[in-house]
Design a protein around this nucleic acid. Structure first.
Length: 506
RNA sequence: GGCCCCUUCGUCUAUCGGUUAGGACACAUGGUUCUCAUCCAUGAAAGAGGAGUUCGACUCUCCUAGGGGCUACCA
């Protein structure tokens, strides 16, 4: 039986697009669920588009997602997700000799031919044909050059490419695991370039050679490749190779149904990480785009997906990237996080925000400027906001009032349901009195709650008449965690200070 | 223009010829010791259109429409 081997084959042309998450993930999940291997191959045959650092970037982000590869380019750091393997090199620019060898084989068997047409001529030819509403395909002028002429022109130093020789008639039926047979007329196919004039292979040629040599069993790639699918299959046939199974994943579209582009928000996976999305959320969300389990569960960890993923449960229709659902998953996974882990995750975001506050020259509360107690304090603060966080990046803005000393808010914020100012003021004074009575060592949310609630009951007042002004005084906000929790974290001294400030405003 | 892919609530989707068309996000309403959030309950919300096949079609076939992709010596 054939071994299960899948590959992810990105081009190092920049960041990894969020739309590529689906092909990577599905490659990985199919391999894992079938007990196979995943290979990382770098497709850098377009030298002009290759950008420095993109490769490292790629590794870094894949690593972050915890998508590990069994084989791939050897890189220095051994702990990283990419090791090496027996089918290298895994970087296409290092495999040109291999492509040349196979191109020569095809030339000899008549599956390919030399073409000396100048790019300028081709350009013009395409324009002419387009003007005549003809498909702008290569006009095959070099298809039947005789051997002597070819030899002469090569000796003369003319530049050439090698083109694949397509059948002139008949049809090619290719098979996609998701869609079944797809029919193409051979006459619609172009004699496309296999080897460019700089000696580099085109994608079309390199994938076929590499996938065969690397013994890939399933090709999972975006469905933008379907149009060139028959050319790939014809190449396999020309070589007499057995093609792997093909699965074309549907595209991920933007909210308005178009291509996902910068105009609609972030497109790089890296940006999502920067903005406080958890990999768990990204993976869970993405897995459900085009895959669905037999039952109605919807929360899946990577490990669970590795076990449960099935090709049969995949769909072929395109999906819209709905950031609101991603946010929901993100909030869910943030709530699930153990506090210590969450603190670690929030740390860079919080620090960034506090740095900005400091830069603006605003004063911090005592505890926040005490580096010894700060960590413990921040942890308590984060605990209070955990269930309110949708993105890690929100932590700074959300918890600012815990750190800055002078809250700025209008006096009206303290008013609860049109109650007169005097009444609110009086209530806050009562609250203040009650809080004063709680000893420092007994300053916990429970005892604060008990003290205040029994007082309110005694007075026969409505809870909101006391608690809303208290909370507003402590936080300076419309919305926040509850007043007892906030008071406990703030400490007795700071809490009383804020209540008194509020009284002063009224 | 040509070729190809796709089409169930606004969104992600379940249904593999017979269902009150199910779930989730978002939305609305109510409840949970003040607000927000969480959590719970409830509600509104869908088979693009037209022909067939069939006792019966969301499900199969065809046509139309809409959306998307490809059409390079880019991937």
């Amino acid at each position: 039986m054939q071994k299960i081997r899948l590959r992810f084959a990105p081009s190092p042309t920049g960041f990894i697009h969020i739309g590529s998450l689906r092909p990577v993930l599905f490659n990985y999940l199919i391999a894992k669920s079938l007990g196979g291997k995943v290979i990382l191959r770098i497709e850098d045959t377009d030298q002009a588009r290759t950008v420095p650092g993109a490769f490292e970037n790629l590794i870094e982000i894949l690593d972050w997602l915890e998508i590990k590869f069994d084989e791939g380019p050897h890189i220095i750091c051994p702990d990283r997700s990419v090791g090496s393997g027996d089918f290298g090199p895994y970087i296409q620019s290092q495999r040109v000799d291999i492509y040349k060898k196979y191109a020569a084989q095809l030339l000899k068997s008549g599956g390919a031919y030399y073409c000396f047409c100048a790019p300028e001529r081709l350009q013009k030819m395409r324009e002419d044909r387009q003007a005549k509403k003809l498909p702008p395909r290569y006009d095959r002028v070099c298809r039947d050059l005789d051997d002597d002429e070819i030899k002469k022109r090569i000796e003369r130093g003319e530049k050439y490419v090698i083109r694949q020789k397509m059948p002139l008639e008949g049809e090619v039926i290719v098979h996609d695991e998701l869609r079944g047979g797809i029919k193409f007329k051979a006459s619609e196919l172009e004699d496309h370039v296999l080897i460019k004039s700089d000696g580099m292979p085109t994608y079309q040629f390199a994938v076929v050679v590499d996938d065969h040599l690397m013994q890939i069993s399933h090709v999972v790639r975006g469905d933008e490749w379907i149009p060139s699918f028959p050319k790939n299959i014809l190449l396999y046939r020309a070589f007499g190779w057995e093609p792997p199974k093909f699965i074309h994943t549907p595209l991920t579209l933007s909210k308005d149904g178009g291509k996902l582009s910068k105009r609609h928000g972030d497109v790089a996976i890296e940006d999502y990480r920067k903005n406080g999305y958890l990999k768990e959320a990204l993976i869970n969300f993405c897995a459900l785009l085009g895959w669905h389990p037999k039952d109605e569960r919807e929360f899946f960890t990577l490990a669970e997906l590795e076990k449960e993923f099935k090709i049969e449960d995949m769909g072929a229709s395109p999906a819209i990237f709905d950031i609101e659902k991603l946010d929901y998953f993100n909030g869910y996974y943030i709530r699930q996080k153990p506090l210590d882990e969450l603190v670690l995750l929030c740390k860079p975001h919080l620090e960034k925000h506090l740095k900005r506050i400091a830069y603006e020259g605003r004063a911090f509360v005592k505890i926040a400027s005490d580096s010894r107690r700060m960590a413990e304090y921040a942890k308590k603060v984060i605990a209070l906001e955990q269930e309110r966080l949708k993105k890690l990046s929100e932590i700074g803005e959300l918890t600012e009032f815990f750190f800055v000393e002078n809250l700025e808010y209008p006096a009206e914020l303290l008013i609860w349901k049109n109650l007169p100012k005097e009444k609110i003021k009086n209530n806050l004074e009562q609250v203040c009195e009650q809080l004063e009575k709680i000893p420092e060592e007994n300053w916990t949310n429970d005892s604060i709650e008990e003290a205040l609630m029994s007082h309110i009951q005694l007075k026969g007042g409505k809870v909101g008449e006391y608690l809303w002004p208290l909370r507003a005084a402590l936080t300076g906000r419309q919305a926040s965690p509850g007043p007892f929790d906030v008071a406990e974290v703030l400490g007795k001294e700071e809490s009383l200070k804020r209540v008194k400030e509020a009284i002063g405003k009224l």
